[in-house]
Design a protein around this nucleic acid. Structure first.
Lengths: 192, 192
DNA sequence: AAAAAGCATTGACTTTTGTCAATGCTTTTA
DNA sequence: TAAAAGCATTGACAAAAGTCAATGCTTTTT
């Protein structure tokens, strides 16, 4: 149940057996069926979720009812409304399961205690957020500076597994496009 | 010279006099004239820069010679090509001064030693990167889900000082628009 | 003080993207 | 297994954004 979590952790920061055992006491496993919510907009985000298996999406919903996907998450990734988690403010994102999923939850109090008690957990957290920042910066750079066809090519090159597993219209949403536009971009690319 | 840096630091993580003095030995001040480069694409980013005064921009340049601004920085902010800094790969961004600027530089070796020797520096770093991540996530959400007029209104509400100090065409670049389009958006807003 | 460069705006036009509606598949649900 | 829902694609048209060119200011440079 915790294999991937600790494989991931120790790849960033090596742990002793004792540390691993101690950290384990702070973790809570959770299963989620496809379409179930992990978090709904307006609720406070109580957990950070590490994804052991499955796929989820975090998204906002606009006035016209459209979903805008801010983040995908699959095995080995972390998903959360971090702002809500850290501040206790109501969440602005929804998170739900695209596929049946197995998660490992870290509550706010667990997170805080781990930060205080285990310096390596702070390092792990720092490296995680740094990686997330760099990935998002690449995405943003691509949005403001690359033509659409190139942006889609970048995405498929970077996340081939997500392209396989997720419906096109969700990828369109992630890219800030309508499904029709993405469909046409793909046709233009494949015509070459 | 280091006032703002330490005011900022201690607001996040309180420091003893000794710690402050020790950290100071790792810092290098630098002045930059308007239009001068702090970093050029292709060079390795050797420093993280804390901005004591002035304004800078980080941007990429596309095949047609257009600038795309990925980040503004003014007093109290940090600017860098973090990916290049951390990996030693050539920078993909340019950074230059929009106004004369006073910077405090932290070199790679200084950064690494500080992380090892001063746990509070790691906490400071973690909080900084977390804040940067959350700000960028808001920007990204706004891009994929809000109409243009609203995005511009958000920007002016969030960064009124930048709107004052920076030419419109740079704000257009930051928003991923042409200067003409931003000008028209502004006219539409003010017509109401 | 004059010349040059930088900047924001506007108009006319083109290209890109969104919207709405319809179709044919495939997958899920009853 | 029949019906319903979900999905990708396409066409016709509308709206949004980009391009190119010109103008009038303002700021910077010489």
């Amino acid at each position: 149940m915790y294999e991937l979590f600790f494989r991931n952790f120790t790849k960033k920061v090596p742990l002793t057996q004792e540390e691993e055992a101690l950290i384990k006491t702070y973790l809570t496993p959770k299963k989620l069926r496809k379409k179930q919510y992990l978090l709904q907009e307006g609720d406070v985000c109580k957990n950070i979720a590490f994804i052991e298996a499955g796929a989820l999406k975090a998204y906002s919903v606009d006035d016209t009812g459209n979903e805008h996907i801010i983040q995908f998450g699959i095995e080995g990734w972390i998903i959360s409304d971090l702002y809500s988690f850290l501040t206790g403010e109501p969440a602005t994102y929804n998170i739900d399961a695209i596929e049946d999923a197995e998660l490992i939850l870290i509550s706010k109090s667990a997170h805080e205690e781990l930060l205080l008690k285990i310096p390596k957990y702070e390092t792990y957290t720092r490296l995680n957020i740094t990686g997330a920042y760099l990935a998002m910066q690449k995405r943003l750079t691509s949005i403001i500076s690359s033509p659409l066809a190139e942006r889609y090519a970048n995405f498929t090159a970077l996340y081939p597994d997500i392209v396989q597993r997720v419906p096109q219209h969700m990828i369109a949403s992630y890219m800030g496009l309508t499904p029709e536009t993405l469909s046409r971009v793909r046709r233009r690319i494949s015509a070459k």
